[in-house]
Design a protein around this nucleic acid. Structure first.
Lengths: 324, 324
DNA sequence: CTGAAAGCGCTTACAG
DNA sequence: CTGAAAGCGCTTACAG
């Protein structure tokens, strides 16, 4: 039939004489024919679509930079390879990851902050390629590809930077809602450990469970002048601390050093510019997507594990402690 | 057959006795049965998926806030209604919008910055619901739903704010690559017009075609001390100007007032905090998505047009001109 | 109220 | 090398 011919004409099927092929293309154009991608996907069992599972989607504005850099890396690699990208959160499919293996995705990129064993289990049973980002070291899973950052090394770098400057009394800030975040825990633990290694006391008593806007800073500072540095578990909280310090007339870094994690370009906009350990997020996202696509396209690809190293971006918010 | 029964059991089809239904559910559970959404979509001619067409995807980091707020608004509404969201750029489907009506989307949310007549035409021929954001006033299209911002009113507000403060010599900054952006053009034109209305000269000679980082500022300032204010076509360029001013020892707002468009929370992080006209982007995105979903679900929904008004967020970067 | 069949629009083997 | 048929996994009318 002419219809089926048109269908053939669309494909890479060169088994038609050039004359009829031309006719077919002409008719297709006239009818404004567009192949239905759903039918094709159903038959060919492939969608060229990656699902991006994000815990933070409903709360984008709080983690803007993170999200932008992540998506920048993912979209670049995905689009380059002619994959499209669908954002997911738990609402879609009304369930956990197991519901996402309903044929709509060729693979899943998973950027939740919390990976319980149940979720890792779900990822395994999903029966389609999965790459996980930010998998904390402790539950590193050999079956699943993981891209993560060396949180422990990063906190070590940050702590030693402060200690080298002469700081002896350092506080660690993490908001209550992030206290159980595995990455926050790793950073905190490494901070404690590194401090101890250098003969400096640091423990739960030095942890500031402040709200995201660090509004507790003023009251705290009145009673805690012995501290000379605040290490914040992430960048945006560190920026909040910077704002509060300015509000309360505390000079950074002269009276107090402030340091954070991530080091996006936002850190160049603050006053003073924020010293941070750097997480190469966009690069990590690109790599994660690359690995996922590779797993999708070649069955026998082994799970891969990359732990990206950290580096220190020294800007203006850290200095020697007063009277140092 | 038992298989088809299972299928029925999955649906809202209550035409089976409770006993068999239970058996079906049990077997489905045992087999870890998951309905294939592709097959369902193919048959039911619906995907519950919205395509988000973005010009800026390949260049996310430059327009982070914009993107985050946009996506925040869109995902909120989409997920609430059990729609999923697919990011698109021109690479997907290897063509313009006409290629996107291949059955994968129920509707399209279109956030390109440039809407040529050809694209509007394509949107119309796409034969599926389309909602356009940032449709500039001049090509307002009655057939297609549009959500836009009152660029003209915004620039008027900004200009009059500066004039009220006493400024008489105002420059307008827009980078070369954004010069043809319809919104930039509207803002510029409204700036000229408003200035003229107040008896102040402003024309192309007052336009600064600087690069995004405003690195031309230093040289310019040496020769152009007569200017007392810079209005930047968007927020991120205004922030760049702020940085350059600090670098060259120019006091903002004492020596020079700086003002931008958009007014995201980023404007609170700068030093001094940046005065901006405010575009309620997240709200606009939510509304656009709502309208799109409504059009998808009811055939007879009329195209809708909303022009969101602007407001002025006065922060610290504008003040009376020197010797004023 | 239930079951068996047709069909969504493609692609992929399988005959001629 | 080409064409006609089978089938991807569902849903939806259509008979019993």
């Amino acid at each position: 039939m002419s219809v089926s011919k048109v269908l053939h004409g669309r494909g890479v099927n060169v088994r038609v004489s050039e004359g009829t092929a031309a006719t077919i293309r002409k008719i297709a154009l006239e009818l404004d024919y567009r192949p239905n991608v759903l039918a094709r996907n159903l038959r060919s069992r492939s969608t060229r679509t990656i699902g991006l599972v994000l815990e933070t989607v409903p709360d984008l504005t709080g983690t803007v930079r993170y999200f932008a850099e992540l998506l920048d890396g993912v979209t670049r690699m995905a689009f380059q390879n002619d994959y499209s990208l669908t954002l997911c959160n738990s609402l879609i499919g009304a369930g956990p990851i197991s519901q996402m293996s309903d044929g709509r995705f060729d693979g899943l990129l998973w950027c939740r902050g919390n990976y319980g064993d149940d979720l890792v289990q779900a990822a395994r049973s999903a029966n389609l390629p999965v790459v996980i980002m930010h998998q904390p070291d402790r539950i590193l899973n050999p079956d699943i590809s993981c891209i993560s950052w060396d949180n422990t090394g990063a906190a070590k770098l940050a702590t030693e930077h402060l200690i080298d400057l002469g700081h002896r009394k350092i506080a660690f800030m993490v908001p209550p809602r992030s206290m159980k975040n595995p990455e926050a825990c790793l950073r905190k633990a490494s901070f404690f450990e590194t401090a101890a290694k250098h003969g400096i006391e640091a423990g739960e008593a030095d942890v500031l469970n402040w709200s995201d806007d660090a509004s507790e800073f003023g009251d705290w500072w009145k009673e805690n002048r012995q501290y000379t540095a605040i290490m914040s578990w992430n960048e945006s909280c560190a920026i909040a601390v910077l704002g509060q310090a300015r509000l309360h007339g505390v000079a950074v870094p002269e009276q107090l050093s402030v340091l954070g994690f991530d080091s996006s370009s936002q850190c160049d906009l603050t006053q003073p510019r924020l010293t941070c350990v750097h997480q190469p997020l966009s690069e990590m996202a690109t790599r994660a997507t690359e690995i996922l696509i590779h797993r999708i396209e070649s069955q026998d690809a082994d799970p891969q594990h990359f732990v990206y190293p950290s580096s220190l971006d020294i800007r203006e918010s850290t200095a020697r402690p007063p009277q140092g």
